[in-house]
Design a protein around this nucleic acid. Structure first.
Length: 201
DNA sequence: GGGAAGATGTTCT
DNA sequence: GAACATCTTCCCT
């Protein structure tokens, strides 16, 4: 994929770091998908970390299975799973191979291919509601289990870094993760303060 | 604007 | 058979 003008292309080591660091550092940067309809995507505004060690909410916590095996690959790989019989969720694997940790992308601010996203989300009328939640985001971007295992450094899904954030760091809010029972006491959800596209305050 | 209900594939007990 | 990293619709205030 041809990167947008002025962005920085991350190296593999960006994703091989500590999961909570990656989850925070992804905020404000760009996520793009390029398929039949051209390049669509936007700015990441909300993430959650899933840690494996001591984290029962993490899919990898119960060991390697057919469903979660992608989570045990090296950092920078996309892990997509199907939930509630209805929705897909997009994760970015972090750490070295075999670690079993990942960052859930919970929301983006749409920037490119907005018309395509509206087409993918019939009935939605506002920009804020287009991708402000993990299931909504995958629907808007057209991501399914077929995209599981895509490498963010070479594939049709990419992360690009915004150089402007080095000077203007976004204000990050930390909170408990959403929609889980076990491990809900851990503060592993991160989002950009006062951003309209965050799923929940 | 908010709470309840329903949809429904895949994994695990 | 239950649980699940969710979203939408419907009805109420």
């Amino acid at each position: 994929m041809k990167p947008p003008k002025g962005v920085i292309i991350p190296e593999r080591k960006f994703f091989l770091r500590d999961t909570t660091e990656v989850a925070k550092d992804l905020l404000g940067h760009f996520l793009y998908v390029e398929k039949r309809d051209g390049r669509i995507g936007g700015r990441i505004v909300e993430t959650e970390a899933y840690l494996f060690r001591n984290d029962p909410a993490c899919h990898a916590a119960r060991g390697l299975t057919e469903r979660n095996k992608t989570m045990f690959r090296q950092g920078g790989i996309v892990y997509v799973y199907f939930i509630y019989g209805v929705h897909h969720c997009l994760n970015i694997v972090t750490g070295p191979e075999g670690k079993g940790t990942a960052v859930l992308i919970r929301a983006i601010e749409p920037i490119a291919g907005i018309d395509v996203m509206f087409r993918n989300r019939p009935g939605i009328t506002t920009l804020e509601n287009l991708a402000n939640g993990p299931g909504k985001l995958t629907r808007a971007l057209g991501i399914t289990r077929d995209d599981d295992g895509t490498d963010l450094l070479t594939g049709h899904i990419r992360v690009f870094l915004d150089p402007c954030l080095k000077k203007n760091k976004p204000k990050i809010v930390t909170s408990a993760r959403i929609g889980i029972q076990q491990g809900s006491d851990k503060l592993l959800r991160y989002y950009i303060a006062n951003h309209p596209c965050v799923s929940k305050r």
